[in-house]
Design a protein around this nucleic acid. Structure first.
Lengths: 354, 354
DNA sequence: CTGAAAGCGCTTACAG
DNA sequence: CTGAAAGCGCTTACAG
């Protein structure tokens, strides 16, 4: 019977086991504290010593154990993403952005979808962040707008970066997406095409983004001397069904709008359905502009004109800000705090008839 | 100036700090080893002792530090999901399923999108799993089909559960999705409607799922005494564009097929475009059936008939199998190893003309 | 610039 | 059924 306990071989390295800081220290003939200094980029190591140690680290393919490091640091190398955005494309793009920012680091991404309405929401988040001793969290909307959550995170001293349509926090803790610019672009696009009877279907105004998109939109209309009449201004729920309903009401008006700007693509898809049901064609009878530039935008018929936010980059910027706290280079970070939506014109918007 | 070092208060509990196993041990007047036994559900604790300790744990809201536990166990409490599926809905649903299985445990989900074509793929995965000492990984297709990856995981002794269309492994390490049943259902649905000229656009046959869906489909056709003629059998790439191309070729045939079954919804959306381009209506001129029942299926016009797999449940089952390895209840686990696709009939399929 | 000691919060052997 | 000792692989705090 073969012993299962791995025995040290002649060099003191154990077979099949990853090298530890002790192995490196022994081979380099220094203390493990000095190896630790090299791992952590401490300036207090002689260049010669550093090179020697680095060479051995590289040769053995040593990588410090994040668990042990975390235990000693009293902080893990896990970055959390806490979100309640229901759009899969949005979620996946942002996850990828965060992961891209972590590439080459020893950080990992832990995800946490949530429901802010859940009575245990705050307690759950606190337990999660505290138990995992998260290095930090990325907060996309609408979680980023939850001041109670922010308070909890502050209490337990967990760094965060908030992604939101307006600056809710200091630049170090923010990625600002300026959604109102997207609304403005939508308005400009439609007024330039010659529309004057333009309606809006907004998301729930409880969401900052819905409010900001609407604000930018009315601002853009104003530039062209137009207003958003009350009967053309409908609040819906960011869902397909609510879009259908709101659009049906708008299209029944006389005179009806010749263009509709929707707070997101889901509701724009709802307009497509309502238009078909009413026997109206897009863009012949009514132009439609969405927001998100989701995958659906280029699968619908006709292709949907939509406003696009660089979701991936927003995630990447947010994670980069978090990671930057390791080293002191805030200055560089602050350069990339803002992002601006862009309109992607497709087939669903055209000049009005006549 | 206030000292930042938290001072022990009269009870020996430190302000603002979470209790540790030592605090529990002291309060319960037992050794920390005994507390550890309670945490780990060891049977070797007197009932009375256990209750006393449990009460104190509950009272103090103690939760063991996963980092410290992991370090001692030489294994973390992180479960990885390694995937290359490009469909956001699929990814998000499966993530949610895994998270639901972990609810109430101290496991967390670490995600890892990847590219199997990348020359560093295997090395990266090995480094990732080894460094994080993952408790286990969930492998959806097509990662689940990569035998080189499986070999790496075996080498470094990392448990895994593979999700695939056929049994590639023993039940403990598998969730089988029986994609061929979905193909068969699609064929039955179309033949029952009266179609006899039925075409297929498959994904790359390099993917097991593509092969299985096609296999089930031809089997279903055979039940009705039909064959899949070579000119009606096209291999595409699971993408929208490849679907457009394959469909355009099919619809140009004389006589053309009256129905097309697609290996996924993306390609089915491509058929919609090709049909419009050819001036053909769905389902009037051609019926379409997809696979995935993605969100798009209920946003396209007309609504897409599609085959649905319980993605969420597949993730949940896979994670449950992984977690079950903690305790010995394999028997219970094996009950839930299989899943079967279902057809969701909508508007895009109808009886052929005449 | 470098190191010996103590500790992060747990568990695994080993005793009893 | 219970515990004292040693250890998981790192870092902090203190010396020098």
């Amino acid at each position: 019977m073969i012993s299962r306990k791995p025995r040290p071989d002649s060099e003191g390295e154990r077979r099949g086991k990853r090298p530890t800081i002790n192995d490196i220290a022994r081979l380099a003939q220094v203390s493990k504290k000095t190896v630790s200094r090299v791992i952590n980029d401490s300036p207090f190591v002689r260049e010669e010593t550093r090179e020697k140690i680095s060479a051995i680290i590289k040769e053995l393919g040593f990588a410090p154990d994040p668990q042990a490091r975390g235990l000693a640091f009293r902080r893990s190398f896990l970055i959390g993403m806490i979100y309640d955005n229901p759009t899969p494309q949005y979620v996946v793009n942002m996850q990828q952005g965060i992961l891209d920012a972590m590439k080459g680091t020893s950080f990992e991404l832990v995800i946490r979808p949530c429901n802010r309405q859940d009575p245990h929401f705050l307690a759950d988040m606190r337990a999660f962040v505290e138990r995992q001793k998260l290095f930090g969290v990325v907060l996309p909307p609408s979680v980023s707008e939850d001041e109670r959550l922010i308070q909890v995170l502050d209490e337990i001293d967990c760094p965060y970066v908030r992604i939101a349509s307006i600056a809710l926090d200091e630049p170090d803790a923010m990625v600002v997406t300026h959604d109102h610019v997207g609304g403005m672009e939508a308005a400009r696009h439609l007024t330039r095409l010659g529309h004057t009877r333009i309606a809006h279907i907004s998301g729930p105004t409880l969401f900052r983004s819905a409010h900001e998109r609407r604000r930018g939109f009315t601002q853009g209309l104003a530039e062209a001397g137009l207003k958003l009449p009350k009967e053309f201004d409908r609040e819906a729920a960011y869902t397909f069904e609510s879009g259908v309903e709101a659009a049906a009401a708008l299209l029944a008006l006389k005179p009806r709008p010749t263009a509709i700007f929707c707070g997101n693509d889901e509701m724009a898809a709802g307009v497509y359905k309502a238009a078909r049901d009413a026997g109206l064609s897009i863009p012949g009878d009514v132009s439609v502009v969405g927001f998100d530039d989701s995958a659906m935008a280029s699968r619908l018929y006709p292709l949907l004109t939509s406003v696009k936010l660089p979701i991936h980059d927003m995630g990447e910027m947010a994670a980069a800000k978090l990671i930057a706290r390791t080293r002191e280079r805030r200055a560089h970070v602050q350069e990339k705090t803002e992002v601006v939506p862009e309109l992607v014109a497709r087939e669903s918007s055209a000049a009005p008839k006549g």
